[in-house]
Write a protein that binds this DNA or RNA. Structure first.
Length: 254
DNA sequence: GCGACAG
DNA sequence: ATCTTGTCGC
């Protein structure tokens, strides 16, 4: 384990050099595709959900895929556990749909990381895709106090003084989210993305949906039940699609 | 030196 | 993340 961390640390430092943060803000278009990913774990099994929504709010459904976990979770090295699973999911999704995400939103950090290489950066660099990380807790220290009002932000700086992410209060009085760009996205555009997704809760709508869908998938699989073609969340139906050539004879993509 | 540490 | 009951509050 000692040696593994040493290797991973070197890898992170090398990969961090490949992370590209544009100088100008990214302007999203109304029909840009947002792919939001989340994973539920149970032993070595991973239940992955990918919510697909346009910038204008149109839902393109929620995709599900099962996979196997091979790496342990080590704080600060989360990317090496979850990254490969996310990468396989996105590759599979692109192959089955023929689409390409305009931005991938991930439950975890981007550059707001001790070596500026969170899982969102890892995926962004590995697949050369724009990515954003949104986490529930911070991994790095920050200075200052975040205002109570909804949509207040507070920058997180590294030792050099670069802004590597922000705290974002998505609702008044709730704990903030920790938002940072993963790759090819300006830090303020990462904030814009999460603000635009919005929703009624602390967790941005698409992330909350991906989380619920992954939990649902896990529960159904464990019970040996068939996956329905739609899932109702907060009173709205979302189309469910399996990213498998076959999954107990279930509805296959396309 | 000690503790804390995304999911 | 997961293991887990009741309970407080909108």
């Amino acid at each position: 384990m000692e040696h593994l961390i040493e290797t991973w640390t070197i890898l992170q430092t090398e990969m961090a050099k490949q992370v590209l943060i544009p100088q100008k803000r990214t302007d999203f278009q109304p029909n840009d595709l947002i792919l939001t990913l989340d994973i539920q774990y149970e032993g070595d099994k991973a239940y992955i959900a990918g919510d697909v929504q346009r910038q204008n709010g149109t839902s393109e459904g929620i995709f599900l895929k099962q996979d196997v976990v091979t790496e342990a979770y080590v704080p600060q090295f989360f990317a090496f556990r979850e990254g490969p699973l996310l990468k396989r999911f996105v590759e599979s999704w692109m192959m089955h749909t023929g689409l390409k995400p305009d931005v991938v939103l991930i439950d975890g950090h981007g550059t707001a990381h001790p070596r500026q290489l969170g899982v969102a950066c890892w995926l962004g660099v590995m697949m050369d895709l724009p990515t954003v990380g949104c986490a529930k807790d911070t991994l790095v220290r920050y200075e200052g106090t975040l205002a109570e009002a909804k949509e207040s932000i507070l920058p997180i700086l590294n030792a050099k003084g670069d802004t590597i992410g922000h705290l974002l209060r998505t609702q008044q009085g709730v704990k903030p989210n920790f938002v940072s760009s993963g790759h090819r996205i300006h830090q303020m555009s990462a904030i814009d993305l999460v603000k635009n997704i919005g929703g009624k809760y602390r967790i941005p709508e698409t992330l909350r949906r991906a989380d619920m869908a992954a939990r649902f998938f896990q529960k159904m699989e464990k019970s040996g039940l068939l996956i329905p073609h739609k899932l109702n969340i907060d009173g709205n139906d979302f189309k469910l699609l399996m990213l498998h050539s076959a999954f107990r004879g279930q509805n296959i993509v396309l």
